[in-house]
Structure formats: C-alpha cells, structure tokens
Write a protein that binds this DNA or RNA. Sequence first.
DNA 1: TTTTAGCACTCTCCCTATGAGAGTGCTAAA
DNA 2: TTTAGCACTCTCATAGGGAGAGTGCTAAAA
Lengths: 343, 343
Amino acid sequence: MRLTDRQKLILTLVIHEHIQTAQPVGSNTLVLKYNLAMSSATVRNEMSVLTEVNLLRQPHTSAGRVPTEEGYRFFVGNLIQKSTLPTTTRRTITHQFYQSRQDVEQWLRLAVSVLASQAQAASLVTAPHAEKAIFKHLELVATRGRQVLMVLVLMDGDIRQQFITLAEAISQERLSEIAGRISTLCIRCDSADIARLRSQFDALGQDIIDILLAEMALTEEAATGEIYLDGMTNVLSEPEFAESDEARQALYILQERSLLENLIASTMTNTDVGGIQVLIGGEGTWEELRQCSVILARYGDPESLTGSIGVLGPIRMPYDRAISTVQFVANVLSDLVSEMLAV
Amino acid sequence: MRLTDRQKLILTLVIHEHIQTAQPVGSNTLVLKYNLAMSSATVRNEMSVLTEVNLLRQPHTSAGRVPTEEGYRFFVGNLIQKSTLPTTTRRTITHQFYQSRQDVEQWLRLAVSVLASQAQAASLVTAPHAEKAIFKHLELVATRGRQVLMVLVLMDGDIRQQFITLAEAISQERLSEIAGRISTLCIRCDSADIARLRSQFDALGQDIIDILLAEMALTEEAATGEIYLDGMTNVLSEPEFAESDEARQALYILQERSLLENLIASTMTNTDVGGIQVLIGGEGTWEELRQCSVILARYGDPESLTGSIGVLGPIRMPYDRAISTVQFVANVLSDLVSEMLAV
DNA sequence: TTTTAGCACTCTCCCTATGAGAGTGCTAAA
DNA sequence: TTTAGCACTCTCATAGGGAGAGTGCTAAAA
C-alpha cells in the first residue's frame, strides 16, 4: 500500500490519539491538538482516502475516525518507530534480574510481572523448554515401604518429581547406588540413547528406567514449559471491556492452558529467537481474541532451550511501548539462559 | 435473633430466589413460584419484619426484597441444609483423584479445577505446607565449572532447586559424596538440628549447609505453599460484575499473591482441618471483597502438613452447593495427604 | 388475633421526542 | 492543491410519559 508522507502522519496521529482517548478522532481535534500546518478540511480529505483503503473506519456517518485492524497492522509494520525503554527503567529491571539470577523460577516471575506493569496489559511467560528431553541426573529417595520418590533432573533445568511404588522394599543405599549408576551412564542422553542402555541394568534398574523414559516422553509431549501469567486485571480496566463478556473470552484463553499452548505454538512456529510476532484482533483465526492484540516473542538459545513471552491487551494497545518492553525482556531472558548454559 | 418458622421459610425462599435471578424478590412472585399456602399480603408483612431486623433490604421503596449480608450470614449459620454432592459426581471426582495419586501437583491442579467447575466460581488451592521445614534429602549436581545445581527435598514433598556457585570447581564424585553424607546425617532434622550438626563437616560441607539452611528458612517464612487458581472467568460472567470494576478488585486479590496469603492466613488461623470459614462481603475487613463471598477450608494432617482450599464468588452464591463442594474436596485432599504420609 | 382482599401510591424501566454538539462531505473560492 | 463555508447526519444527554411491579395501609374476613 502506497501512502504519501502526510497520509502516514495522519494515520499515525489518529492511532496515537485513539490509543489515548479510546474515542473516535475528528479532523478538528487532530489539527488543534497537534498544531498541524494544514486545515481540518485537508485532514478530512486525507482521512477520506485512508478510509477508502480500509486503514480507518467511521463508527457512523458523522463520527470521527477509528483505526481498523488493517490500520493497526500497517502502523505496526511500517510506521512504528522503534522506541526503547528509558535507560533508567532498563537499568532497574536488569538489576532486579541480576539479583535473582540463581533461581529460574524467580526470573520468570519477575519477567511476567515486569511485562505486566510496563505494558499495562496481561502478560505471559513460559518456562524455557527443550524440544528434546536430555537426561541430566536421577535421584531416588526411599520414603517408606515400597514407596520411592523419584526426582529427575533434565538438562533444561526442568525437575520432575514423582512417587513410584516398587515391587519390593529397597534400602536407601541400594537406591542411591542405582540412581548414581544411571546418572553417570545416561548423562546427556536423550530417550533413544537411554533405551539402548537399558539392557546394561538389572531388573530393578530396568523398571526404573522405564518409568524414567515415560516421564521424559511426557515432558517432550508438552509443547511448552510451565506458563506464568500476570496482570490480567490490567485488561479488565480498559474501557472496551466494560461489557464484561469480551474480556471474559480473552482472559479465558489465558486461563485455559491448552488453548494458550495452541496459541503460542501456532504463532511461534516460524518465529526465530529475537523475532516478534504481533497478532492484531485475532487475525481471523482466534475468535476469542477479536478485541485483543497479542505480542509474542521467543527467547533463549535456539539450539537447545527456548521459551515464549508475550503480552495481551486491547487492540488499542500502545504498541511501541509494548513491543519494546517485550523485546527488552526477551533479550534479558535470552542472556540469562545463555549464561545458565555457559557457566 | 429469634425468627418464627414462617419467617425462616420466607428468608430462605427469598435468598434462594435471589440467588437464581439476581433480582429483587417480590411477595407475589414468591407465593406463585413456591405455591405458598398464604397470601402475598401475609408474605409482605413478614418481609416487613425481616427488613426491620436487617435480614432483608429494599433497593428502593417500591421494589422487592434483597437479602442483606447479615441475611446471608444468618442463612449460612442457621438455615442452610447441608447438602451433599450427588453420589455419581462424587464418584467421578474421587476416581479422577485416584488416577493422579502419584503426583502432588496433579492433585492440586485437579482440585482447583473441580472446585471451579462444581461451584461455578473462582477457586484456589494452596500446596500442602509444613510449618517447620524438615530435611529429607539433598542432591548436588555439577553443571559446569564452579556452578552447581542444588536440589533440596523436604519432608512435606516440597522440592527447592537452586544454582549455587562454589569457591572452586568440585568433581561430581566429591559432590555426590558430600550430598550423601548430609542426606544420611540430617534426615528428619529441622533447621536447628542441622545447625548443630554443621561442625561435623569440612569447609565445603559447611558452605553447603549454610546455603541449605538459608533455603529452609525461606521455605518456613512462606506462609503457604504454592497457590493454584482457576475459574476466574466464572466470576466475570456474574451479572453483578457487569460494571467491571468490582470484579477487577476481587480478581486482583486473587492475583496478588501477598494479599491472597494474608487473606488465607488471617481467615485460617483459628480453623481446624475439616472446619469451614465463610466470609461474606469482606466482613468489614476486606474492602476489595465487598461484593464477594469466600469459602475457605483447611485440609491435610494438622500435625504436620496442611493447606487451604476455597472458592470465591459473588455474595449471591449458591452457598449449599459451594460449601459441600469445598468440604468434599478438602476431605479428598486430606485423605490423599495422609495416604502420602503413611505409605 | 391473624390473615387477606382491595387500593392508592411509589419507583424503575422503557420508549419517545427534542436539542445541542461534534464531525462530516461537498462546493466554490483562494 | 488547499481552505473557508455550509448544509447535513448522527450520537448523546435530557426530559416527559406511560406501563408494570411491588409496596404499605386499611378494613373486612376467618
């Protein structure tokens, strides 16, 4: 779509103004508020053009203009000026992350809370997750009788714990010995490798390996790691969700884990780490998100460990700020992941 | 407060009807809908009395009656008939829990989802949590260089993981040996015991014990275990929350972990396992919950491991069903906890 | 003494009408 | 190509006027 500079300016201003006021924007308002060096009639003519090419829309004949979804998309794709968060903000955030560097769970909680408060929207962060589960360490703890606690540590930092019941009671020494052997032999192995090693163990060891493999398979099935959410009440305060039903649908997607995983999976398939996806108004696919926009990014190490982060807000979202926040947090998380992998 | 049987009946019916319709209830409606053997005038007189003692309220002079908070409290305290969930429902739920018995996290997810769907409200479940952290097992996994993953298993099933950086690189064998010694010596010890044992270890062991103690202290500080939430969108669909701001405040309490912990802590202090607390309209203390009611119960083994569960909905909540659901789920969880402790 | 029929009265809710205000599109002049 | 001027359109806020639901009171009935 070819637009003159003036048309681009007006589109930008309409979007900017509408994001602030949530109201249709009139030609007069625009001229006065932004001291434009042209008359309202000129603005009206340009608006007419923009309406014809479906970037703007009139709620009714004699109202101001409102950006269409296509308008927002054009804006995000062509006009948005990459803003960056203020240095002080960035420093504060980085500092917070630095303080909680030992604990992955804390990063993620912090990330999701920073996103929510900076973008004033609902936010989500998925724990970093490897496509292939790689064994790192196994621990068996005798509980009582035949009940044993199995703790499985994977290379991506994921820890799976499970109670298992063995055929007979086994002493802690024996359990530790087996766990030690499995840990030493299988380190850095994937499921297939471990299956091949299975025959080297005695009956008990093979039983345990079977459970272990089942658990690893389960981890691999999960499309994403654990999902952290925050800021959902931010969305509720937006005026377009006063008729609460729309908001409910949007929040429902966030709550319903399977839907959310779908959304992330289908949006992120072709997204590189560092790349950003902006989903405006559900893009025809996500009925529940018709009133919402979602900004998603991938973080981590593309070779091994990746996760997704994003924010969800009304279509009328401050895209520049939201995008730069998402980008910034994604970068911070990527750094933390590679630091974790490298040390 | 002394009421005649007829007054109790009418109060009950008004509450019942109002819960269904969310509208003020008129004398005529009541007589017709419930085939009362009296005239609407009689009902009106009784309603007048109930209004005088502040159990009912008129939104405006010529409207029907609405229960006051006090009315609901009287109802819950004196009139409610303990209903139980249908046997088939109970069986289905029990069966689901039975299937996920190995995995504590799965119980809790299931519990919170059952509560939400059965009570059609927002629901919460906290992980079982011991007042005193008791050591069970320690594991140290060499990562790379001086970076070590510490996995700490406590008796209540809580697992804490953390990356720690040692003064120098240590081999996995050495780490396993130390972890093994600490595990053997400290099993079933609390922080004080472990602090006493500290001198029996070499410098490295003491360093690790210090970190371990810090971690245990952290666990003890936390008033509750992890909190699981579900069904928040259920609350949004209630008509009294159409003016979305009220709903926002209520959901905010659920989202804001510290507030929620406060709420649980202050409500649960005097509640035994098996007991149920019903908080109607914030009870003057919780400003954000003025439009809501919360039903909370404690589950687990009072001697060692307890957690809280509850539902949050509009004041106009189907108390009988909600209470029996909470009670039932609390019982199921208590059974699972004692099974876990006993096996 | 208690219950009930009858009735006037009150208040909300919904519908309609009306006018102000904001904003548009078009035309003709600059 | 831009702009001033103007008629026109549509929303929104406000007010008025039933209809309907429900009450409280009074007096009669049980």
